[in-house]
Design a protein around this nucleic acid. Structure first.
Lengths: 210, 210, 210, 210
DNA sequence: TATGAATGAGACTTCATTCAT
DNA sequence: GATGAATGAAGTCTCATTCAT
């Protein structure tokens, strides 16, 4: 995920009291957006849930959109961190193990942060679609790099296609499914990915065993 | 797709003129919702595009939400019909061929009806999420039935899990991907499904050949 | 006064009912602006005084400023008409008689339309200052023409200066004074103008008698 | 200028620091009001320009209106002082010379203090119109006294009328004209006043020469 | 039945004023 | 006293919905 310009924040509070309030406002907004969508969310509702006044919300954010933007960035950072954690595990790990670990982590993330799903689904505005596209590209790039590390002989075009399908598949399923997915479904989902990718890994294994 | 309670329509017009007008209103609403989203769409804009007056829109629909509902139902019927067409093809067809044909048809449908994607991404409200859930369940049931027809020995629980993953996978990818997906990506996607499902089909083949 | 572009009006009503309403809104706005000034006037107050809803006000005018603009134009037209009436009197009339007649008419106008004074005093915004400047220029031009008709020998520069002082004097006094001015004050004011302009007229008389 | 009730000042600061701050606040407010008008001026902007905090402004003034009031009083005092200076010149001076001197001084004052004009044009509220009226009355009284000193025989009613026209004329023209008036216009303006008042002075001269 | 003008609740946003630090 | 964050009343404007014609 590329670095983004900082959110349009009016005031960065230094006092602990204000810092807390800001946190509460962003949390509250994330919840309200998740529940009713961006357009239907009202600043009043956000303020009330954050247990403040509308005026305080506007002290930190110049408008509703800035609030959405701030939330988007917060999530982007969390996903970024998650991906970093997942890929910095040292040692030799099988593809399947890596995939399983990644999926489990992502499913857990989506369950922990129900607002994320709502956010992504509501990104219909042009501005945010561009963001989304950029995120997906970055994830695809990184995934392709991971593939390259294990299958250096695979042509780049091929690698990119596989990475694309993998990233799209995972993100699409996470977004539309994660809350309701049972363990059995997730297990089957992993099977799907394992079987799909097996031949590529096998090819390497064969070459390696020669 | 389950039977739905009758749409909230105030008057079912008998006259051809009115029927046409109703059609135009729904088309117009679908377009406007797709273009700017549900909240930002105005009844005025919908009426103008349908070449009628606001009053006429309210003659058919008690409120804006009812319009969205009508559109949802229309799309549900179209998807329903599509699925019926796909499955009523007689003769022996391989799983892979069936899958490919289905995927191609669905991708084509999504490309033909950009409003569908916009609609689904705009759900958000509780009422519509329930709708969505119901649709998915119905598709899963039918898919499980298709599997049962070919793999009668597979335990029902298993079948349901596979059908769930298949339906979720297909619908999720269609919604988040279809407009931008290249042919190479779609081909790889098919591969994924083929390899995943191959062992199940093979199991049958083995048992059959004994 | 130069022709102005038509006010930003959203809808020009044809029905008598609406026409009345529009009239009431403009009248009401003129009153409210006159009483509390443009900024302090609220659309709510304007709507209530016009015995309508806020929504109706916005049906005719896209924003508060457009209302001010409409009023300005209405007054500009009235002043225009007044000036036309004053100058189209045929026959030979003495300067003093003409001046007296004009002043009386202008004072009457200002007393009849208390909103006019308020409007001009509130024209502080850049946009309206330009308007004002243009009006004054036009009046000065016309006045200079009137002078030229009677004193063709007077150099143009001179004529312009006199016209400027005359117009500025009359408009300034009208704006700041007219409501409280007693008859005695107005009579003295006329004297002032007569005595000031007498030498110019006399010069002509002398030349004429030679 | 009549005695005014003491300005609404919360605290009359004794410390030099505070005195300075108070001065800065009033200056700042005068500038901001002059630039954007009373309503559009924000206490924040005033505080920032005065290089203090909003809280400090409220230490001195209970509300925004009190600030305007303080500015009005300050200007009233300055005009008062100016008038005192103008009239305390000893020796025999012709009417015309006195008038010219006064006008020049007033024009200079208006050019030096652009805020004054803005202030007067922004009156509008009932409370301030009363202020204005009172100022005008006081100037008229003083002017009538000046006339009385030179023309003791003139009936008081007459004197008052002349003083009224003179004061209204001068103040009206100053307010609406001073920034844009050319020297030629001002010269002609003086001519106007000279010719108007000449007969009154002549009358005295005649009586004196008998 | 069709129209579209009228209505007014409700959204966003600003900013005068208060008050805890 | 000084500061500036917090508050919330109030203003502008939109638009779903109603209803007279």
């Amino acid at each position: 995920m590329p670095k983004r310009k900082p959110p349009e924040v009016r005031r960065v509070p230094s006092q602990a009291r204000s810092q807390e309030r800001l946190e509460r406002i962003v949390d509250s907004a994330a919840e309200v957006f998740a529940e009713v969508g961006f357009e239907a969310a009202t600043m009043e509702a956000i303020a009330v849930r954050a247990d403040t006044s509308i005026g305080s919300v506007y002290q930190f954010f110049p408008n509703k959109r800035a609030l959405l933007y701030a939330i988007a960035i917060r999530y982007a950072e969390r996903v970024q961190d998650l991906f970093d954690d997942l890929t910095t595990v040292e040692g030799s790990e099988s593809w399947d193990a890596f995939l399983d670990r990644t999926l489990d982590a992502l499913v857990a993330f989506h369950r922990r942060e129900p607002g994320f799903r709502a956010l992504v689904r509501n990104w219909s505005s042009q501005e945010f679609l561009a963001q989304d596209e950029a995120s997906m590209k970055e994830f695809t790039r990184r995934t392709a790099a991971l593939i390259a590390a294990r299958l250096p002989k695979m042509p780049e075009a091929r690698r990119t296609v596989i990475a694309t399908v993998l990233v799209e598949n995972v993100s699409a399923l996470l977004i539309s499914t994660s809350r309701r997915a049972s363990d059995a479904v997730i297990t089957e989902w992993k099977s799907m990915l394992h079987r799909w990718l097996a031949p590529y890994a096998t090819a390497r294994a064969k070459r390696a065993s020669r």
